[in-house]
Each structure stands twice: as structure tokens, then as C-alpha cells.
Design a protein around this nucleic acid. Structure first.
Length: 493
RNA sequence: CGGGGUGUAGCGUAGCCCGGUAUCGCGCCACAUUUGGGAUGUGGAGGUCGUAGGUUCGAAUCCUGCCACCCCGACCA
């Protein structure tokens, strides 16, 4: 049993916070709302980055880097964009400090005021589109497919490790196209890339859908998203992909000469996922013993723990352990051999459970004698004694890692199914939200007023209009007005 | 930013009402015995009691401001 980790059933958010800290993923920093991502947590993020980056490149995108600062005037060029972000911007007003005359310390030098304030980017559409103006003249320059890995700052009121921090890490793709059709295809393609990543790598099932007007990105014509379900029945927006129409092209005057000799505004998209995915990963799978990581993203996939008395025994075990380690590494499995003499085996078992290492191998004198090892799975906490002669260890472990990856994905799907409910009346709607939470699939009359009203009454928002929804005549769960299909409501992070 | 709560060693805490510089556990260091699910014993180190003022002979304790964190709202990836 893990020492001091609260139970999910008792206090879910406390459990989450403690888990993030105890598993060495991240901690609060001296800077308000900003976290320190610790090496173990960062190594998971790096694995996510590596895979996403690969997928972006496979779909034709290249990485670039744009400035951290955005001149204030840029931000105001797209009206709804500035409206959406104005309330959460960090602003640089000065460029120099000096010693206070009265010796009280360092102060901002009032003489070093910037002519134009700089905004610490909350997102980069504006700097990027001002740059694209110079990069795009002709249809030959299109499509322009760029991604950037960066940090951004949004001055949020309440922050939570990974889920909502003042500064966060993300990637933002910004593309420009000759036609609306092509831009829309790009928007949907990237949503699909995100969904594939979430399901195949994070083992987190997601609903692909379209945002309602209320929930749309500031400056977008359409926002597509992937929505995940957490173990406490709350939804988490895990990634968004925006069809920007010609909004930013118009705001920054980005036109291109068409093949036919005309001059047109380009069509844009932007899409992003952030360190929030870490939050999704943690909350989707972990249990009261700690983190449960999908093998495909686990920095350490297998840990080998020797059980021994005395130096001589350790040496014998180490020979075998290193053999196994070499076999596993040969097939690309990441293995750690923890032969530290400073902790006892039981301590290590608990530690690696807390950190979510998918497979643990125990190796002791008894095993040496019998030609066996003990294999323990993190996901379901079962153990088996494996005979080394029965099949190659690398085969055994790679199959097991695959099984675990599939297993936790299926478990997450089953869980989501168990908290996804179709409702047909307002009473039912309220009851389900209160009792089980989760996704509530219901008819909605399509108006923002109704959406706002429901949010006011229940705190649930429309997470998305699922792309795969079936056309079905019905009546709005609140107003009784006609509806042509169901949408997903949920309380959300 | 509104309402509520909490800040005492790396972590978790007692003491606060009723002022006299601090309790216990975990962790840490040393040594010994231990090692198949978070070992045990003995000894030891570690604190400007969140911070800045005020009251007082004397403040962790009383008063005021500020800061941070947690919970509930509003806002959001």
C-alpha cells in the first residue's frame, strides 16, 4: 500500500495533487501558478512530444520558432481573438531594473518604459500571421504547414498542476491554405492525429467532436476537439483544432495570387495540445497505489529488482539481471536495474508502483535456483512466476507490455461507457449529472441561450457535438424545442 | 477577483483560546543487525514558527497589512 496517498473515493482532487507530487512528476514553484516539471514528469512529456512530433512530420509539417513576446498592437488586430485573451495576459512594460535610491532593493527603472508594451504570448496566431504576410505571395507558397513547440502564458485565476497552470508547455500548429476546403481538411486531419495519439499512445479514449459557438476558440470559425473522460466523471478537453477561416488573413492582410491571376485571402488553421495531456494521462489510469502509465509512454517500462542477502548473492543475481536487461534492450524495451543497496525490496516495489512502471521483475536466490523470475504487472497488480526456459524473455515482456497497453485502454473505454448516459428528460439529466456524472448524451435545441441556461443550472457544458452522431429527431432536454441530434454534456475541467 | 479555510524542520503535525523562543511521527546522517511487499535498535543533525509591522519586559501564541496554498464560485487548454 502506498504511504500517504489519499484515496480517490475520498478526495479525488487531493489524490490527484498528491499523486503528481509523490510520483515526482511536478511540484509548485515559487512563482504563482507556475509549476516545476520534475525530471520524471518531464521524461513522460518528452515521450509524448517525440511521438506527436513524428506524427506532425508524417503529415507534412515542419517545426519553427516564433518570439515569446507579442507587440500589444498585434493582439488587437483580430477583434474576437483579443476579446478572448485580453483578460489573461501578462504584459512586459519595462526593460531595466535599478537599485532603489533609498537602498531598499531593486526596483523597476521608471525611465526604462517600453514605447509599446509586449504581451507574453498566450498563443501565437498574431505573431505568426504577421510573419506569414511576408512568407506568402502566391498559391505556390501554399500550403504553409508549420508547428512550434513553445511555452505560453495565460493568467488564470485558479491553477492546478498540469491541468491549468499560468505558464504551460505546448505545441501549436499554424497552417495556411489556398482554399477553405483544404483548410477544413487540415483541421480535421489534425483532430484525427490527436485522437489517434490519445488512444494509441496515452490509452485514453476520446470523443471527437465540434465545439458549440460558445466554446469556440477566440478567432476561429469552427473548433474541433477531442474530449476525454476522467475517473471522477468530469470531462477534459485534451486537444483542439481550429478552422480559422480567413479571419487572421484579413486581420494581418495575408493575400496570395491565385493560379488564375486573382488575389485572395488565405485560409488558416491552428491546433494545439499542451502539458494538460499529462493531467489526462494521470487521471485516466492511475489508482490509489499511484500512477499507472501506458507502456508506450512510460519512461521506464520494466524495472528489475534484485532480492539478496549479502554481496556474493547480489553478484550472482546481477549477472542474471544484466543478461535479462540486455535481452530486453535489444528489442527496444527500456529497463532499469535497481540494485541500490540503500532501499529494501519492499520499499522499491511500492516506489515503482507509485511511479507507474508497467512491469516489475523480481529476481532472488529462489529464482536463480529454479530458473524463474517473478513478473508483476502495475495495471492490475497481479504477479506470476515465469520460467525463463519456456520462451525468450524479450518475447514474453513485449507481449506483456502490449497486453497492458491494450488492457488499460479497454478499461478506460469500459469506464467511459459506464458513465455515458443517454437521457431524455430534464429530471433525468439533472439526476445523472449528480449521481454518476460523466457524459450525458441529450438533445439540445441548438441555441446559445439554452446552453448557457443549462450551464447555469447544472454546471455542465456542451463538451462537443460528436462527429459520429446520428441524425435523430428529438426534443431539447431543457426547452422541449425540436432537435436533430444529441450532444455530449458534462462537467469539465 | 468574491466567499470560506490553512501556513510551525524536507513532509505531516502538537502547542495558539489562557504570551515566557517549540511537541511528536516520517524522512535525513552514523553504526550494527537486516533484505521474496514500505525493517529494527542505539546515537545524531536539522527551526529567524509564511512575511512585514504593531502591542508587550517578553510574541508561534494578541492586533493589522501583505504573500502563498487548499476548497467553493466567476474565467479558461
Amino acid at each position: 500500500m502506498s504511504k500517504g496517498l489519499p484515496k480517490r473515493s475520498e478526495d479525488y482532487s487531493l489524490w490527484y495533487n498528491e499523486l503528481v507530487k509523490k510520483a515526482d512528476l511536478a511540484e509548485n514553484s515559487p512563482v504563482r501558478g507556475c509549476m516545476v516539471i520534475k525530471p520524471y514528469g518531464y521524461s513522460i512529456w518528452e515521450k509524448m512530444q517525440a511521438q506527436l512530433d513524428k506524427m506532425f512530420k508524417e503529415t507534412g509539417h515542419s517545426n519553427a520558432y516564433f518570439p515569446l513576446f507579442i507587440p500589444k498592437s498585434f493582439l488587437s488586430k483580430e477583434a474576437s481573438h483579443v476579446e478572448g485573451f485580453a483578460k489573461e495576459c501578462a504584459v512586459v512594460t519595462h526593460y531595466r531594473l535599478k537599485n532603489a535610491e533609498d537602498g531598499s532593493g531593486i526596483i523597476v527603472d521608471p525611465d526604462a518604459k517600453l514605447e509599446e508594451e509586449l504581451i507574453v504570448r498566450p498563443t501565437s496566431e498574431t505573431v505568426i500571421w504577421s510573419t506569414y504576410k511576408n512568407w506568402i505571395q502566391s498559391y505556390r507558397d501554399l500550403p504553409l504547414l508549420v508547428n512550434q513547440w513553445a511555452n505560453v502564458v495565460r493568467w488564470e485565476m485558479r491553477t492546478r498542476l498540469f491541468l491549468r497552470t499560468t505558464e504551460f508547455l505546448w505545441q501549436e500548429g499554424h497552417t495556411a491554405h489556398a482554399t477553405a476546403k483544404e483548410a477544413m481538411e487540415e483541421t480535421i486531419q489534425m483532430m484525427n492525429v490527436y485522437a489517434q495519439f490519445a488512444e494509441e499512445y496515452m490509452a485514453v479514449p476520446v470523443v471527437k467532436g465540434k465545439k458549440t459557438e460558445n466554446e469556440r476558440f477566440a478567432g476561429a470559425d469552427e473548433t474541433f476537439c477531442i474530449e476525454a473522460m476522467m475517473q471522477d466523471g468530469k470531462a477534459l478537453q485534451a486537444g483542439t483544432s481550429h478552422f480559422l477561416g480567413q479571419n487572421f488573413a484579413k486581420a494581418f492582410d495575408v493575400k496570395f495570387a491565385t493560379k488564375e491571376g486573382g488575389l485572395e485571402y488565405v485560409w488558416g488553421t491552428s491546433w494545439g495540445v499542451s502539458t494538460r495531456l499529462m493531467g489526462a494521462l494521470i487521471m485516466a489510469h492511475s489508482d490509489d497505489n499511484g500512477l499507472v502509465l501506458p507502456p508506450k509512454l512510460a519512461p521506464i517500462q520494466v524495472v528489475i529488482i534484485p532480492i539478496y542477502r549479502g554481496e556474493a548473492e547480489l553478484e550472482l543475481i546481477s549477472v542474471k539481471a544484466k543478461e535479462i536487461m540486455a535481452d530486453l534492450r535489444k528489442v527496444g524495451i527500456s529497463v532499469k536495474y535497481d540494485d541500490r543497496d540503500t532501499q529494501k525490496p519492499g520499499w522499491k516495489f511500492a516506489e515503482y508502483e507509485l511511479k507507474g512502471v508497467p512491469v516489475r521483475i523480481g529476481l532472488g536466490p529462489r529464482d536463480l535456483e529454479n530458473g524463474t523470475i517473478e513478473i508483476a504487472r502495475r495495471d492490475n497488480l497481479t504477479k506470476e512466476t515465469f520460467e525463463l526456459a519456456s520462451q525468450p524473455i524479450a518475447t514474453k515482456i513485449s507481449n506483456l507490455l502490449d497486453q497492458i497497453q491494450d488492457g488499460i485502454f479497454k478499461k478506460a473505454i469500459d469506464f467511459r461507457a459506464s458513465v455515458t448516459t443517454e437521457v431524455n428528460s430534464w429530471e433525468e439529466f439533472k439526476k445523472v449529472l449528480n449521481d454518476t456524472g460523466g457524459f450525458v448524451s441529450a438533445h439540445w435545441d441548438g441555441t446559445s441561450e439554452t446552453e448557457e441556461k443549462i450551464k447555469e443550472l447544472t454546471k455542465a457544458t456542451i463538451r462537443c457535438i460528436p462527429l459520429d452522431r446520428k441524425e435523430e429527431a428529438g426534443t431539447c432536454v431543457l426547452t422541449g424545442n425540436p432537435s436533430s441530434g444529441r450532444v455530449y454534456f458534462a462537467k469539465a475541467y
